[in-house]
Design a protein around this nucleic acid. Structure first.
Lengths: 212, 212
DNA sequence: CTCGACCTGGCCGGTGCTGCCTATATCATC
DNA sequence: GATGATATAGGCAGCACCGGCCAGGTCGAG
């Protein structure tokens, strides 16, 4: 049984038999799936999405398909901001080494050759879903910090950038050619908006939100 | 011309002809190389090293060799603390997709099939050397911070841990059941030994040294 | 034109941090 | 037993920081 009850697996393959076999296989592990007969069909689907997926998900993607190839679809996914939320497992009947190596180097989660072991494949799917869940958790944590950051005014951000560099208010004031008192005002607003009480807490909050 | 004049490429291949051809190719780009006719020969070489490499380096590694295979050597390298200083480019005449995919997923820099384009290979070598140089720079930066950390006494570390958590001296004192004055003493020593002037600088120094 | 958002900055009292002095106690080492 | 490292802690002067109070300025939206 999976640890991700609401997870979803997207199957993109032009062969209906393959899609059904994979869907059946995933159902035996209580995994939801959705089939698409082409890369474009999947692209049409995500075009309708208003936000990035909020449940763990991954993709089983055939390399060779009529029309847009699996590799091309993968390339397109890489341009999306939530690319790492959707790990891609390539499926291929007769791939060459350079293609597979290139896909993995670009971040594909795995590259499986047909015929593959059912158990091994579903294990990989569940690992991919685990990674997806982890990435989503990180993105959610980053989201609140990101929103707080966007609520800062331009000047407040200027001050914050220098403060998290470790400069005392005096030097921040010199650097921005304003008075210490004004720096203190901005600094206090930044702490307030970011929900912290000290410069150290601020740097910690920014660090764990992926700014480095 | 490479940007890494002292870089070194380690060639591990049982075929003397291949080693010479690669060495010649690298010389045309002014790259130093060293050949080994087996994985064990290379292992014997690094067994004599007193420290990790201090110049950018990478490895061109044949997958199939008599005795210890290239893959096994790669596995062994992964156990070394400086593994990422030595990017590995696999060379293979007739590899299967799973082998190549697995190698890349485990962190191999590339996996090239023979016959390969000379230019493409040397380009990859130079990219690998660039990565190696970058990793070495990071490790050197971490090294000084690590040494400074080790110069701290136990108590100083206790105080530091709480200070970088953003606690004011008062609360640190409460947490450790000592007086504020003593916390201030330890705190000052920590700043001095770590070469910083404020808690923010300290957290920044620790962050960029890979402690997260 | 008024209103709100934003940037600016002076004053003042309170709190926190720093540096420099001093001192005691422990513990290991020579 | 002397020496040095370490942890403990008080006093004091000085600087840094905080927050509340005030007030002036610009600029765009209504």
């Amino acid at each position: 049984m999976t640890q991700h009850p609401d997870a979803k697996v997207f199957i993109v393959d032009d062969d209906a038999g393959v899609r059904e076999a994979l869907a059946w296989l995933l159902r035996t592990r209580r995994l939801l799936s959705e089939g698409y007969d082409s890369a474009d069909a999947f692209l049409a689907e995500i075009a309708g999405w208003k936000a990035e997926p909020d449940v763990p998900c991954c993709m089983l993607l055939d390399v060779r398909m009529p029309g847009t190839s699996g590799l091309a679809l993968f390339e397109h996914l890489l341009t999306l901001p939530w690319k790492s939320v959707m790990p891609v497992i390539f499926l291929s009947g007769h791939a060459d080494v350079p293609t597979a190596v290139d896909a993995v180097k670009r971040g594909a989660f795995d590259f499986c050759e047909k015929p593959f072991s059912d158990n091994a494949l579903v294990d990989r799917v569940e690992q991919a879903l685990g990674l997806s869940a982890q990435v989503q958790a990180e993105r959610r944590a980053q989201h609140s910090v990101q929103q707080r950051l966007q609520s800062l005014t331009e000047r407040e951000r200027d001050v914050m950038d220098l403060v998290i560099g470790g400069l005392p208010n005096k030097l921040v004031a010199d650097r921005l050619n304003i008075s210490v008192r004004t720096v203190e005002v901005h600094r206090a607003r930044v702490f307030d908006k970011m929900g912290v009480k000290s410069a150290v807490e601020l740097t910690n909050a920014l660090r764990q939100a992926g700014s480095p």
